[in-house]
Write a protein that binds this DNA or RNA. Structure first.
Lengths: 218, 218
DNA sequence: AATAATTTTTAGATTTGTCTAAATATTTAG
DNA sequence: CTAAATATTTAGACAAATCTAAAAATTATT
């Protein structure tokens, strides 16, 4: 399916926002796409009709699977072009973003397939961000436990090391499971505990012992 | 100065038309940009305000110097991208037009400067058409179409004027492409058709309409 | 030269993506 | 728990680029 440049920019921005923020609001998005919130509302309705976002008035929204797939295609193009601009044309990595913002909207699939091969199917762009492959898969950074996970980044619980009943009981209480999305707000030097924030619930404190056993990917 | 994609397409089309036609009419232009004549009138008024065309209602029009300069910049981008697609990404010369139609609107000047150097500052694109240099200058090849090419001399196909899909289909059928070597055996007064002979295949007849659109160097 | 055919322009409408201002809903704070 | 602050949506407008239908101008034909 083909989308307008404006639609693509919204989809891409929502994708980036929902990785770094647990909730994507219209205001947040309006800043990201540099428009007024009222315009965002208009566009959300259109994207919903096209089944790209899950959206109900006055509620926060997310990309559908189709929306994510679309976002990854755009990001793939963006990052491949950035790689090209740096590796072949000799740009510095901090000069290429705006040009790639334009190039990412070129529609030809065959072009991207060939460009990818020409560049040697790179997995990371010049900024170190992963380049989705043709199936939308990105090389994930290794999983880290909550002691190692960087602060303030949305992370997804990917595994639990200690699977004792006591641990599972605790996870159940906090409503943490594989796939749960959370963010580390703060780490306390004093006892190694961490404050985590999940959607819809107040922040919670986990002891160092617990934190060491919960693994995430970002 | 920056122009919209629509404006650029009009400018480029007017340029091509005023090279191949003595007078450029709204109807002719409307076919070239694939819109209705009424829309062309609207756009001409806008382009006139921007000093890109000399236009008075009900009269034929021409590009201003500024318009020509703009057209050459767009054509330069188009042809450099075509060269890139063929020489670096391995596309066939008859597959690149539509992609270059999109790429020609990428705005960065620095990108084109670097692309030009990366490609070795080529003077001709894969169709044999000259690539304007950064100052808008074009190298003219002494090329003649098959009506003008002398009889019984080996000639090399250097460019195709009409690059419509229909024309490309026909060329593909006859296995004619840029670089093909051929000889004019005979010209028929009756309908202007020409008999050509290429290596390894029987002689073939081309209509006047086709012959006019195939250019050669000898 | 008068009329017919064609071309060009005008007038009014449509779509996309945006805006401002006002209305409405939600969240935060006293 | 209200009230204030903030966020979101609606309503109405606009610019760009297009369209159709009709009017006006030009060109061609008899």
């Amino acid at each position: 399916m083909k989308f307008t440049e404006a639609e693509e920019n919204y989809i891409k921005s929502i994708y980036h926002l929902q990785i770094t923020h647990e909730k994507v609001s219209a205001t947040l998005l309006s800043a990201a796409v540099n428009t007024r919130a009222a315009s965002v509302t208009d566009m959300l309705k259109k994207l919903q009709l096209k089944k790209l976002v899950n959206y109900k008035p006055y509620q926060s929204f997310t990309l559908t699977d189709k929306g994510v797939k679309t976002a990854l295609e755009i990001i793939r193009k963006h990052r491949l072009w950035e790689f090209f601009l740096v590796s072949k044309l000799g740009f510095n990595w901090d000069e290429v973003h705006d040009i790639a913002e334009e190039l990412e909207h070129i529609s030809s699939k065959e072009l991207i397939t060939r460009l990818d091969n020409y560049l040697g199917n790179p997995s990371f762009d010049p900024h170190g961000d992963p380049i989705p492959d043709k199936n939308g898969r990105i090389k994930q950074l290794k999983q880290k436990n909550l002691i190692e996970t960087p602060l303030k980044k949305m992370a997804t619980v990917s595994s639990i090391r200690d699977q004792s009943n006591e641990m599972l009981e605790l996870l159940k209480h906090y409503n943490i499971s594989i796939g749960t999305r959370l963010r580390i707000n703060k780490r306390f030097e004093f006892d190694g505990s961490v404050e985590i924030k999940m959607e819809k619930v107040p922040a919670a404190i986990l002891s160092e012992q617990v934190a060491k056993n919960i693994f995430c990917t970002i």
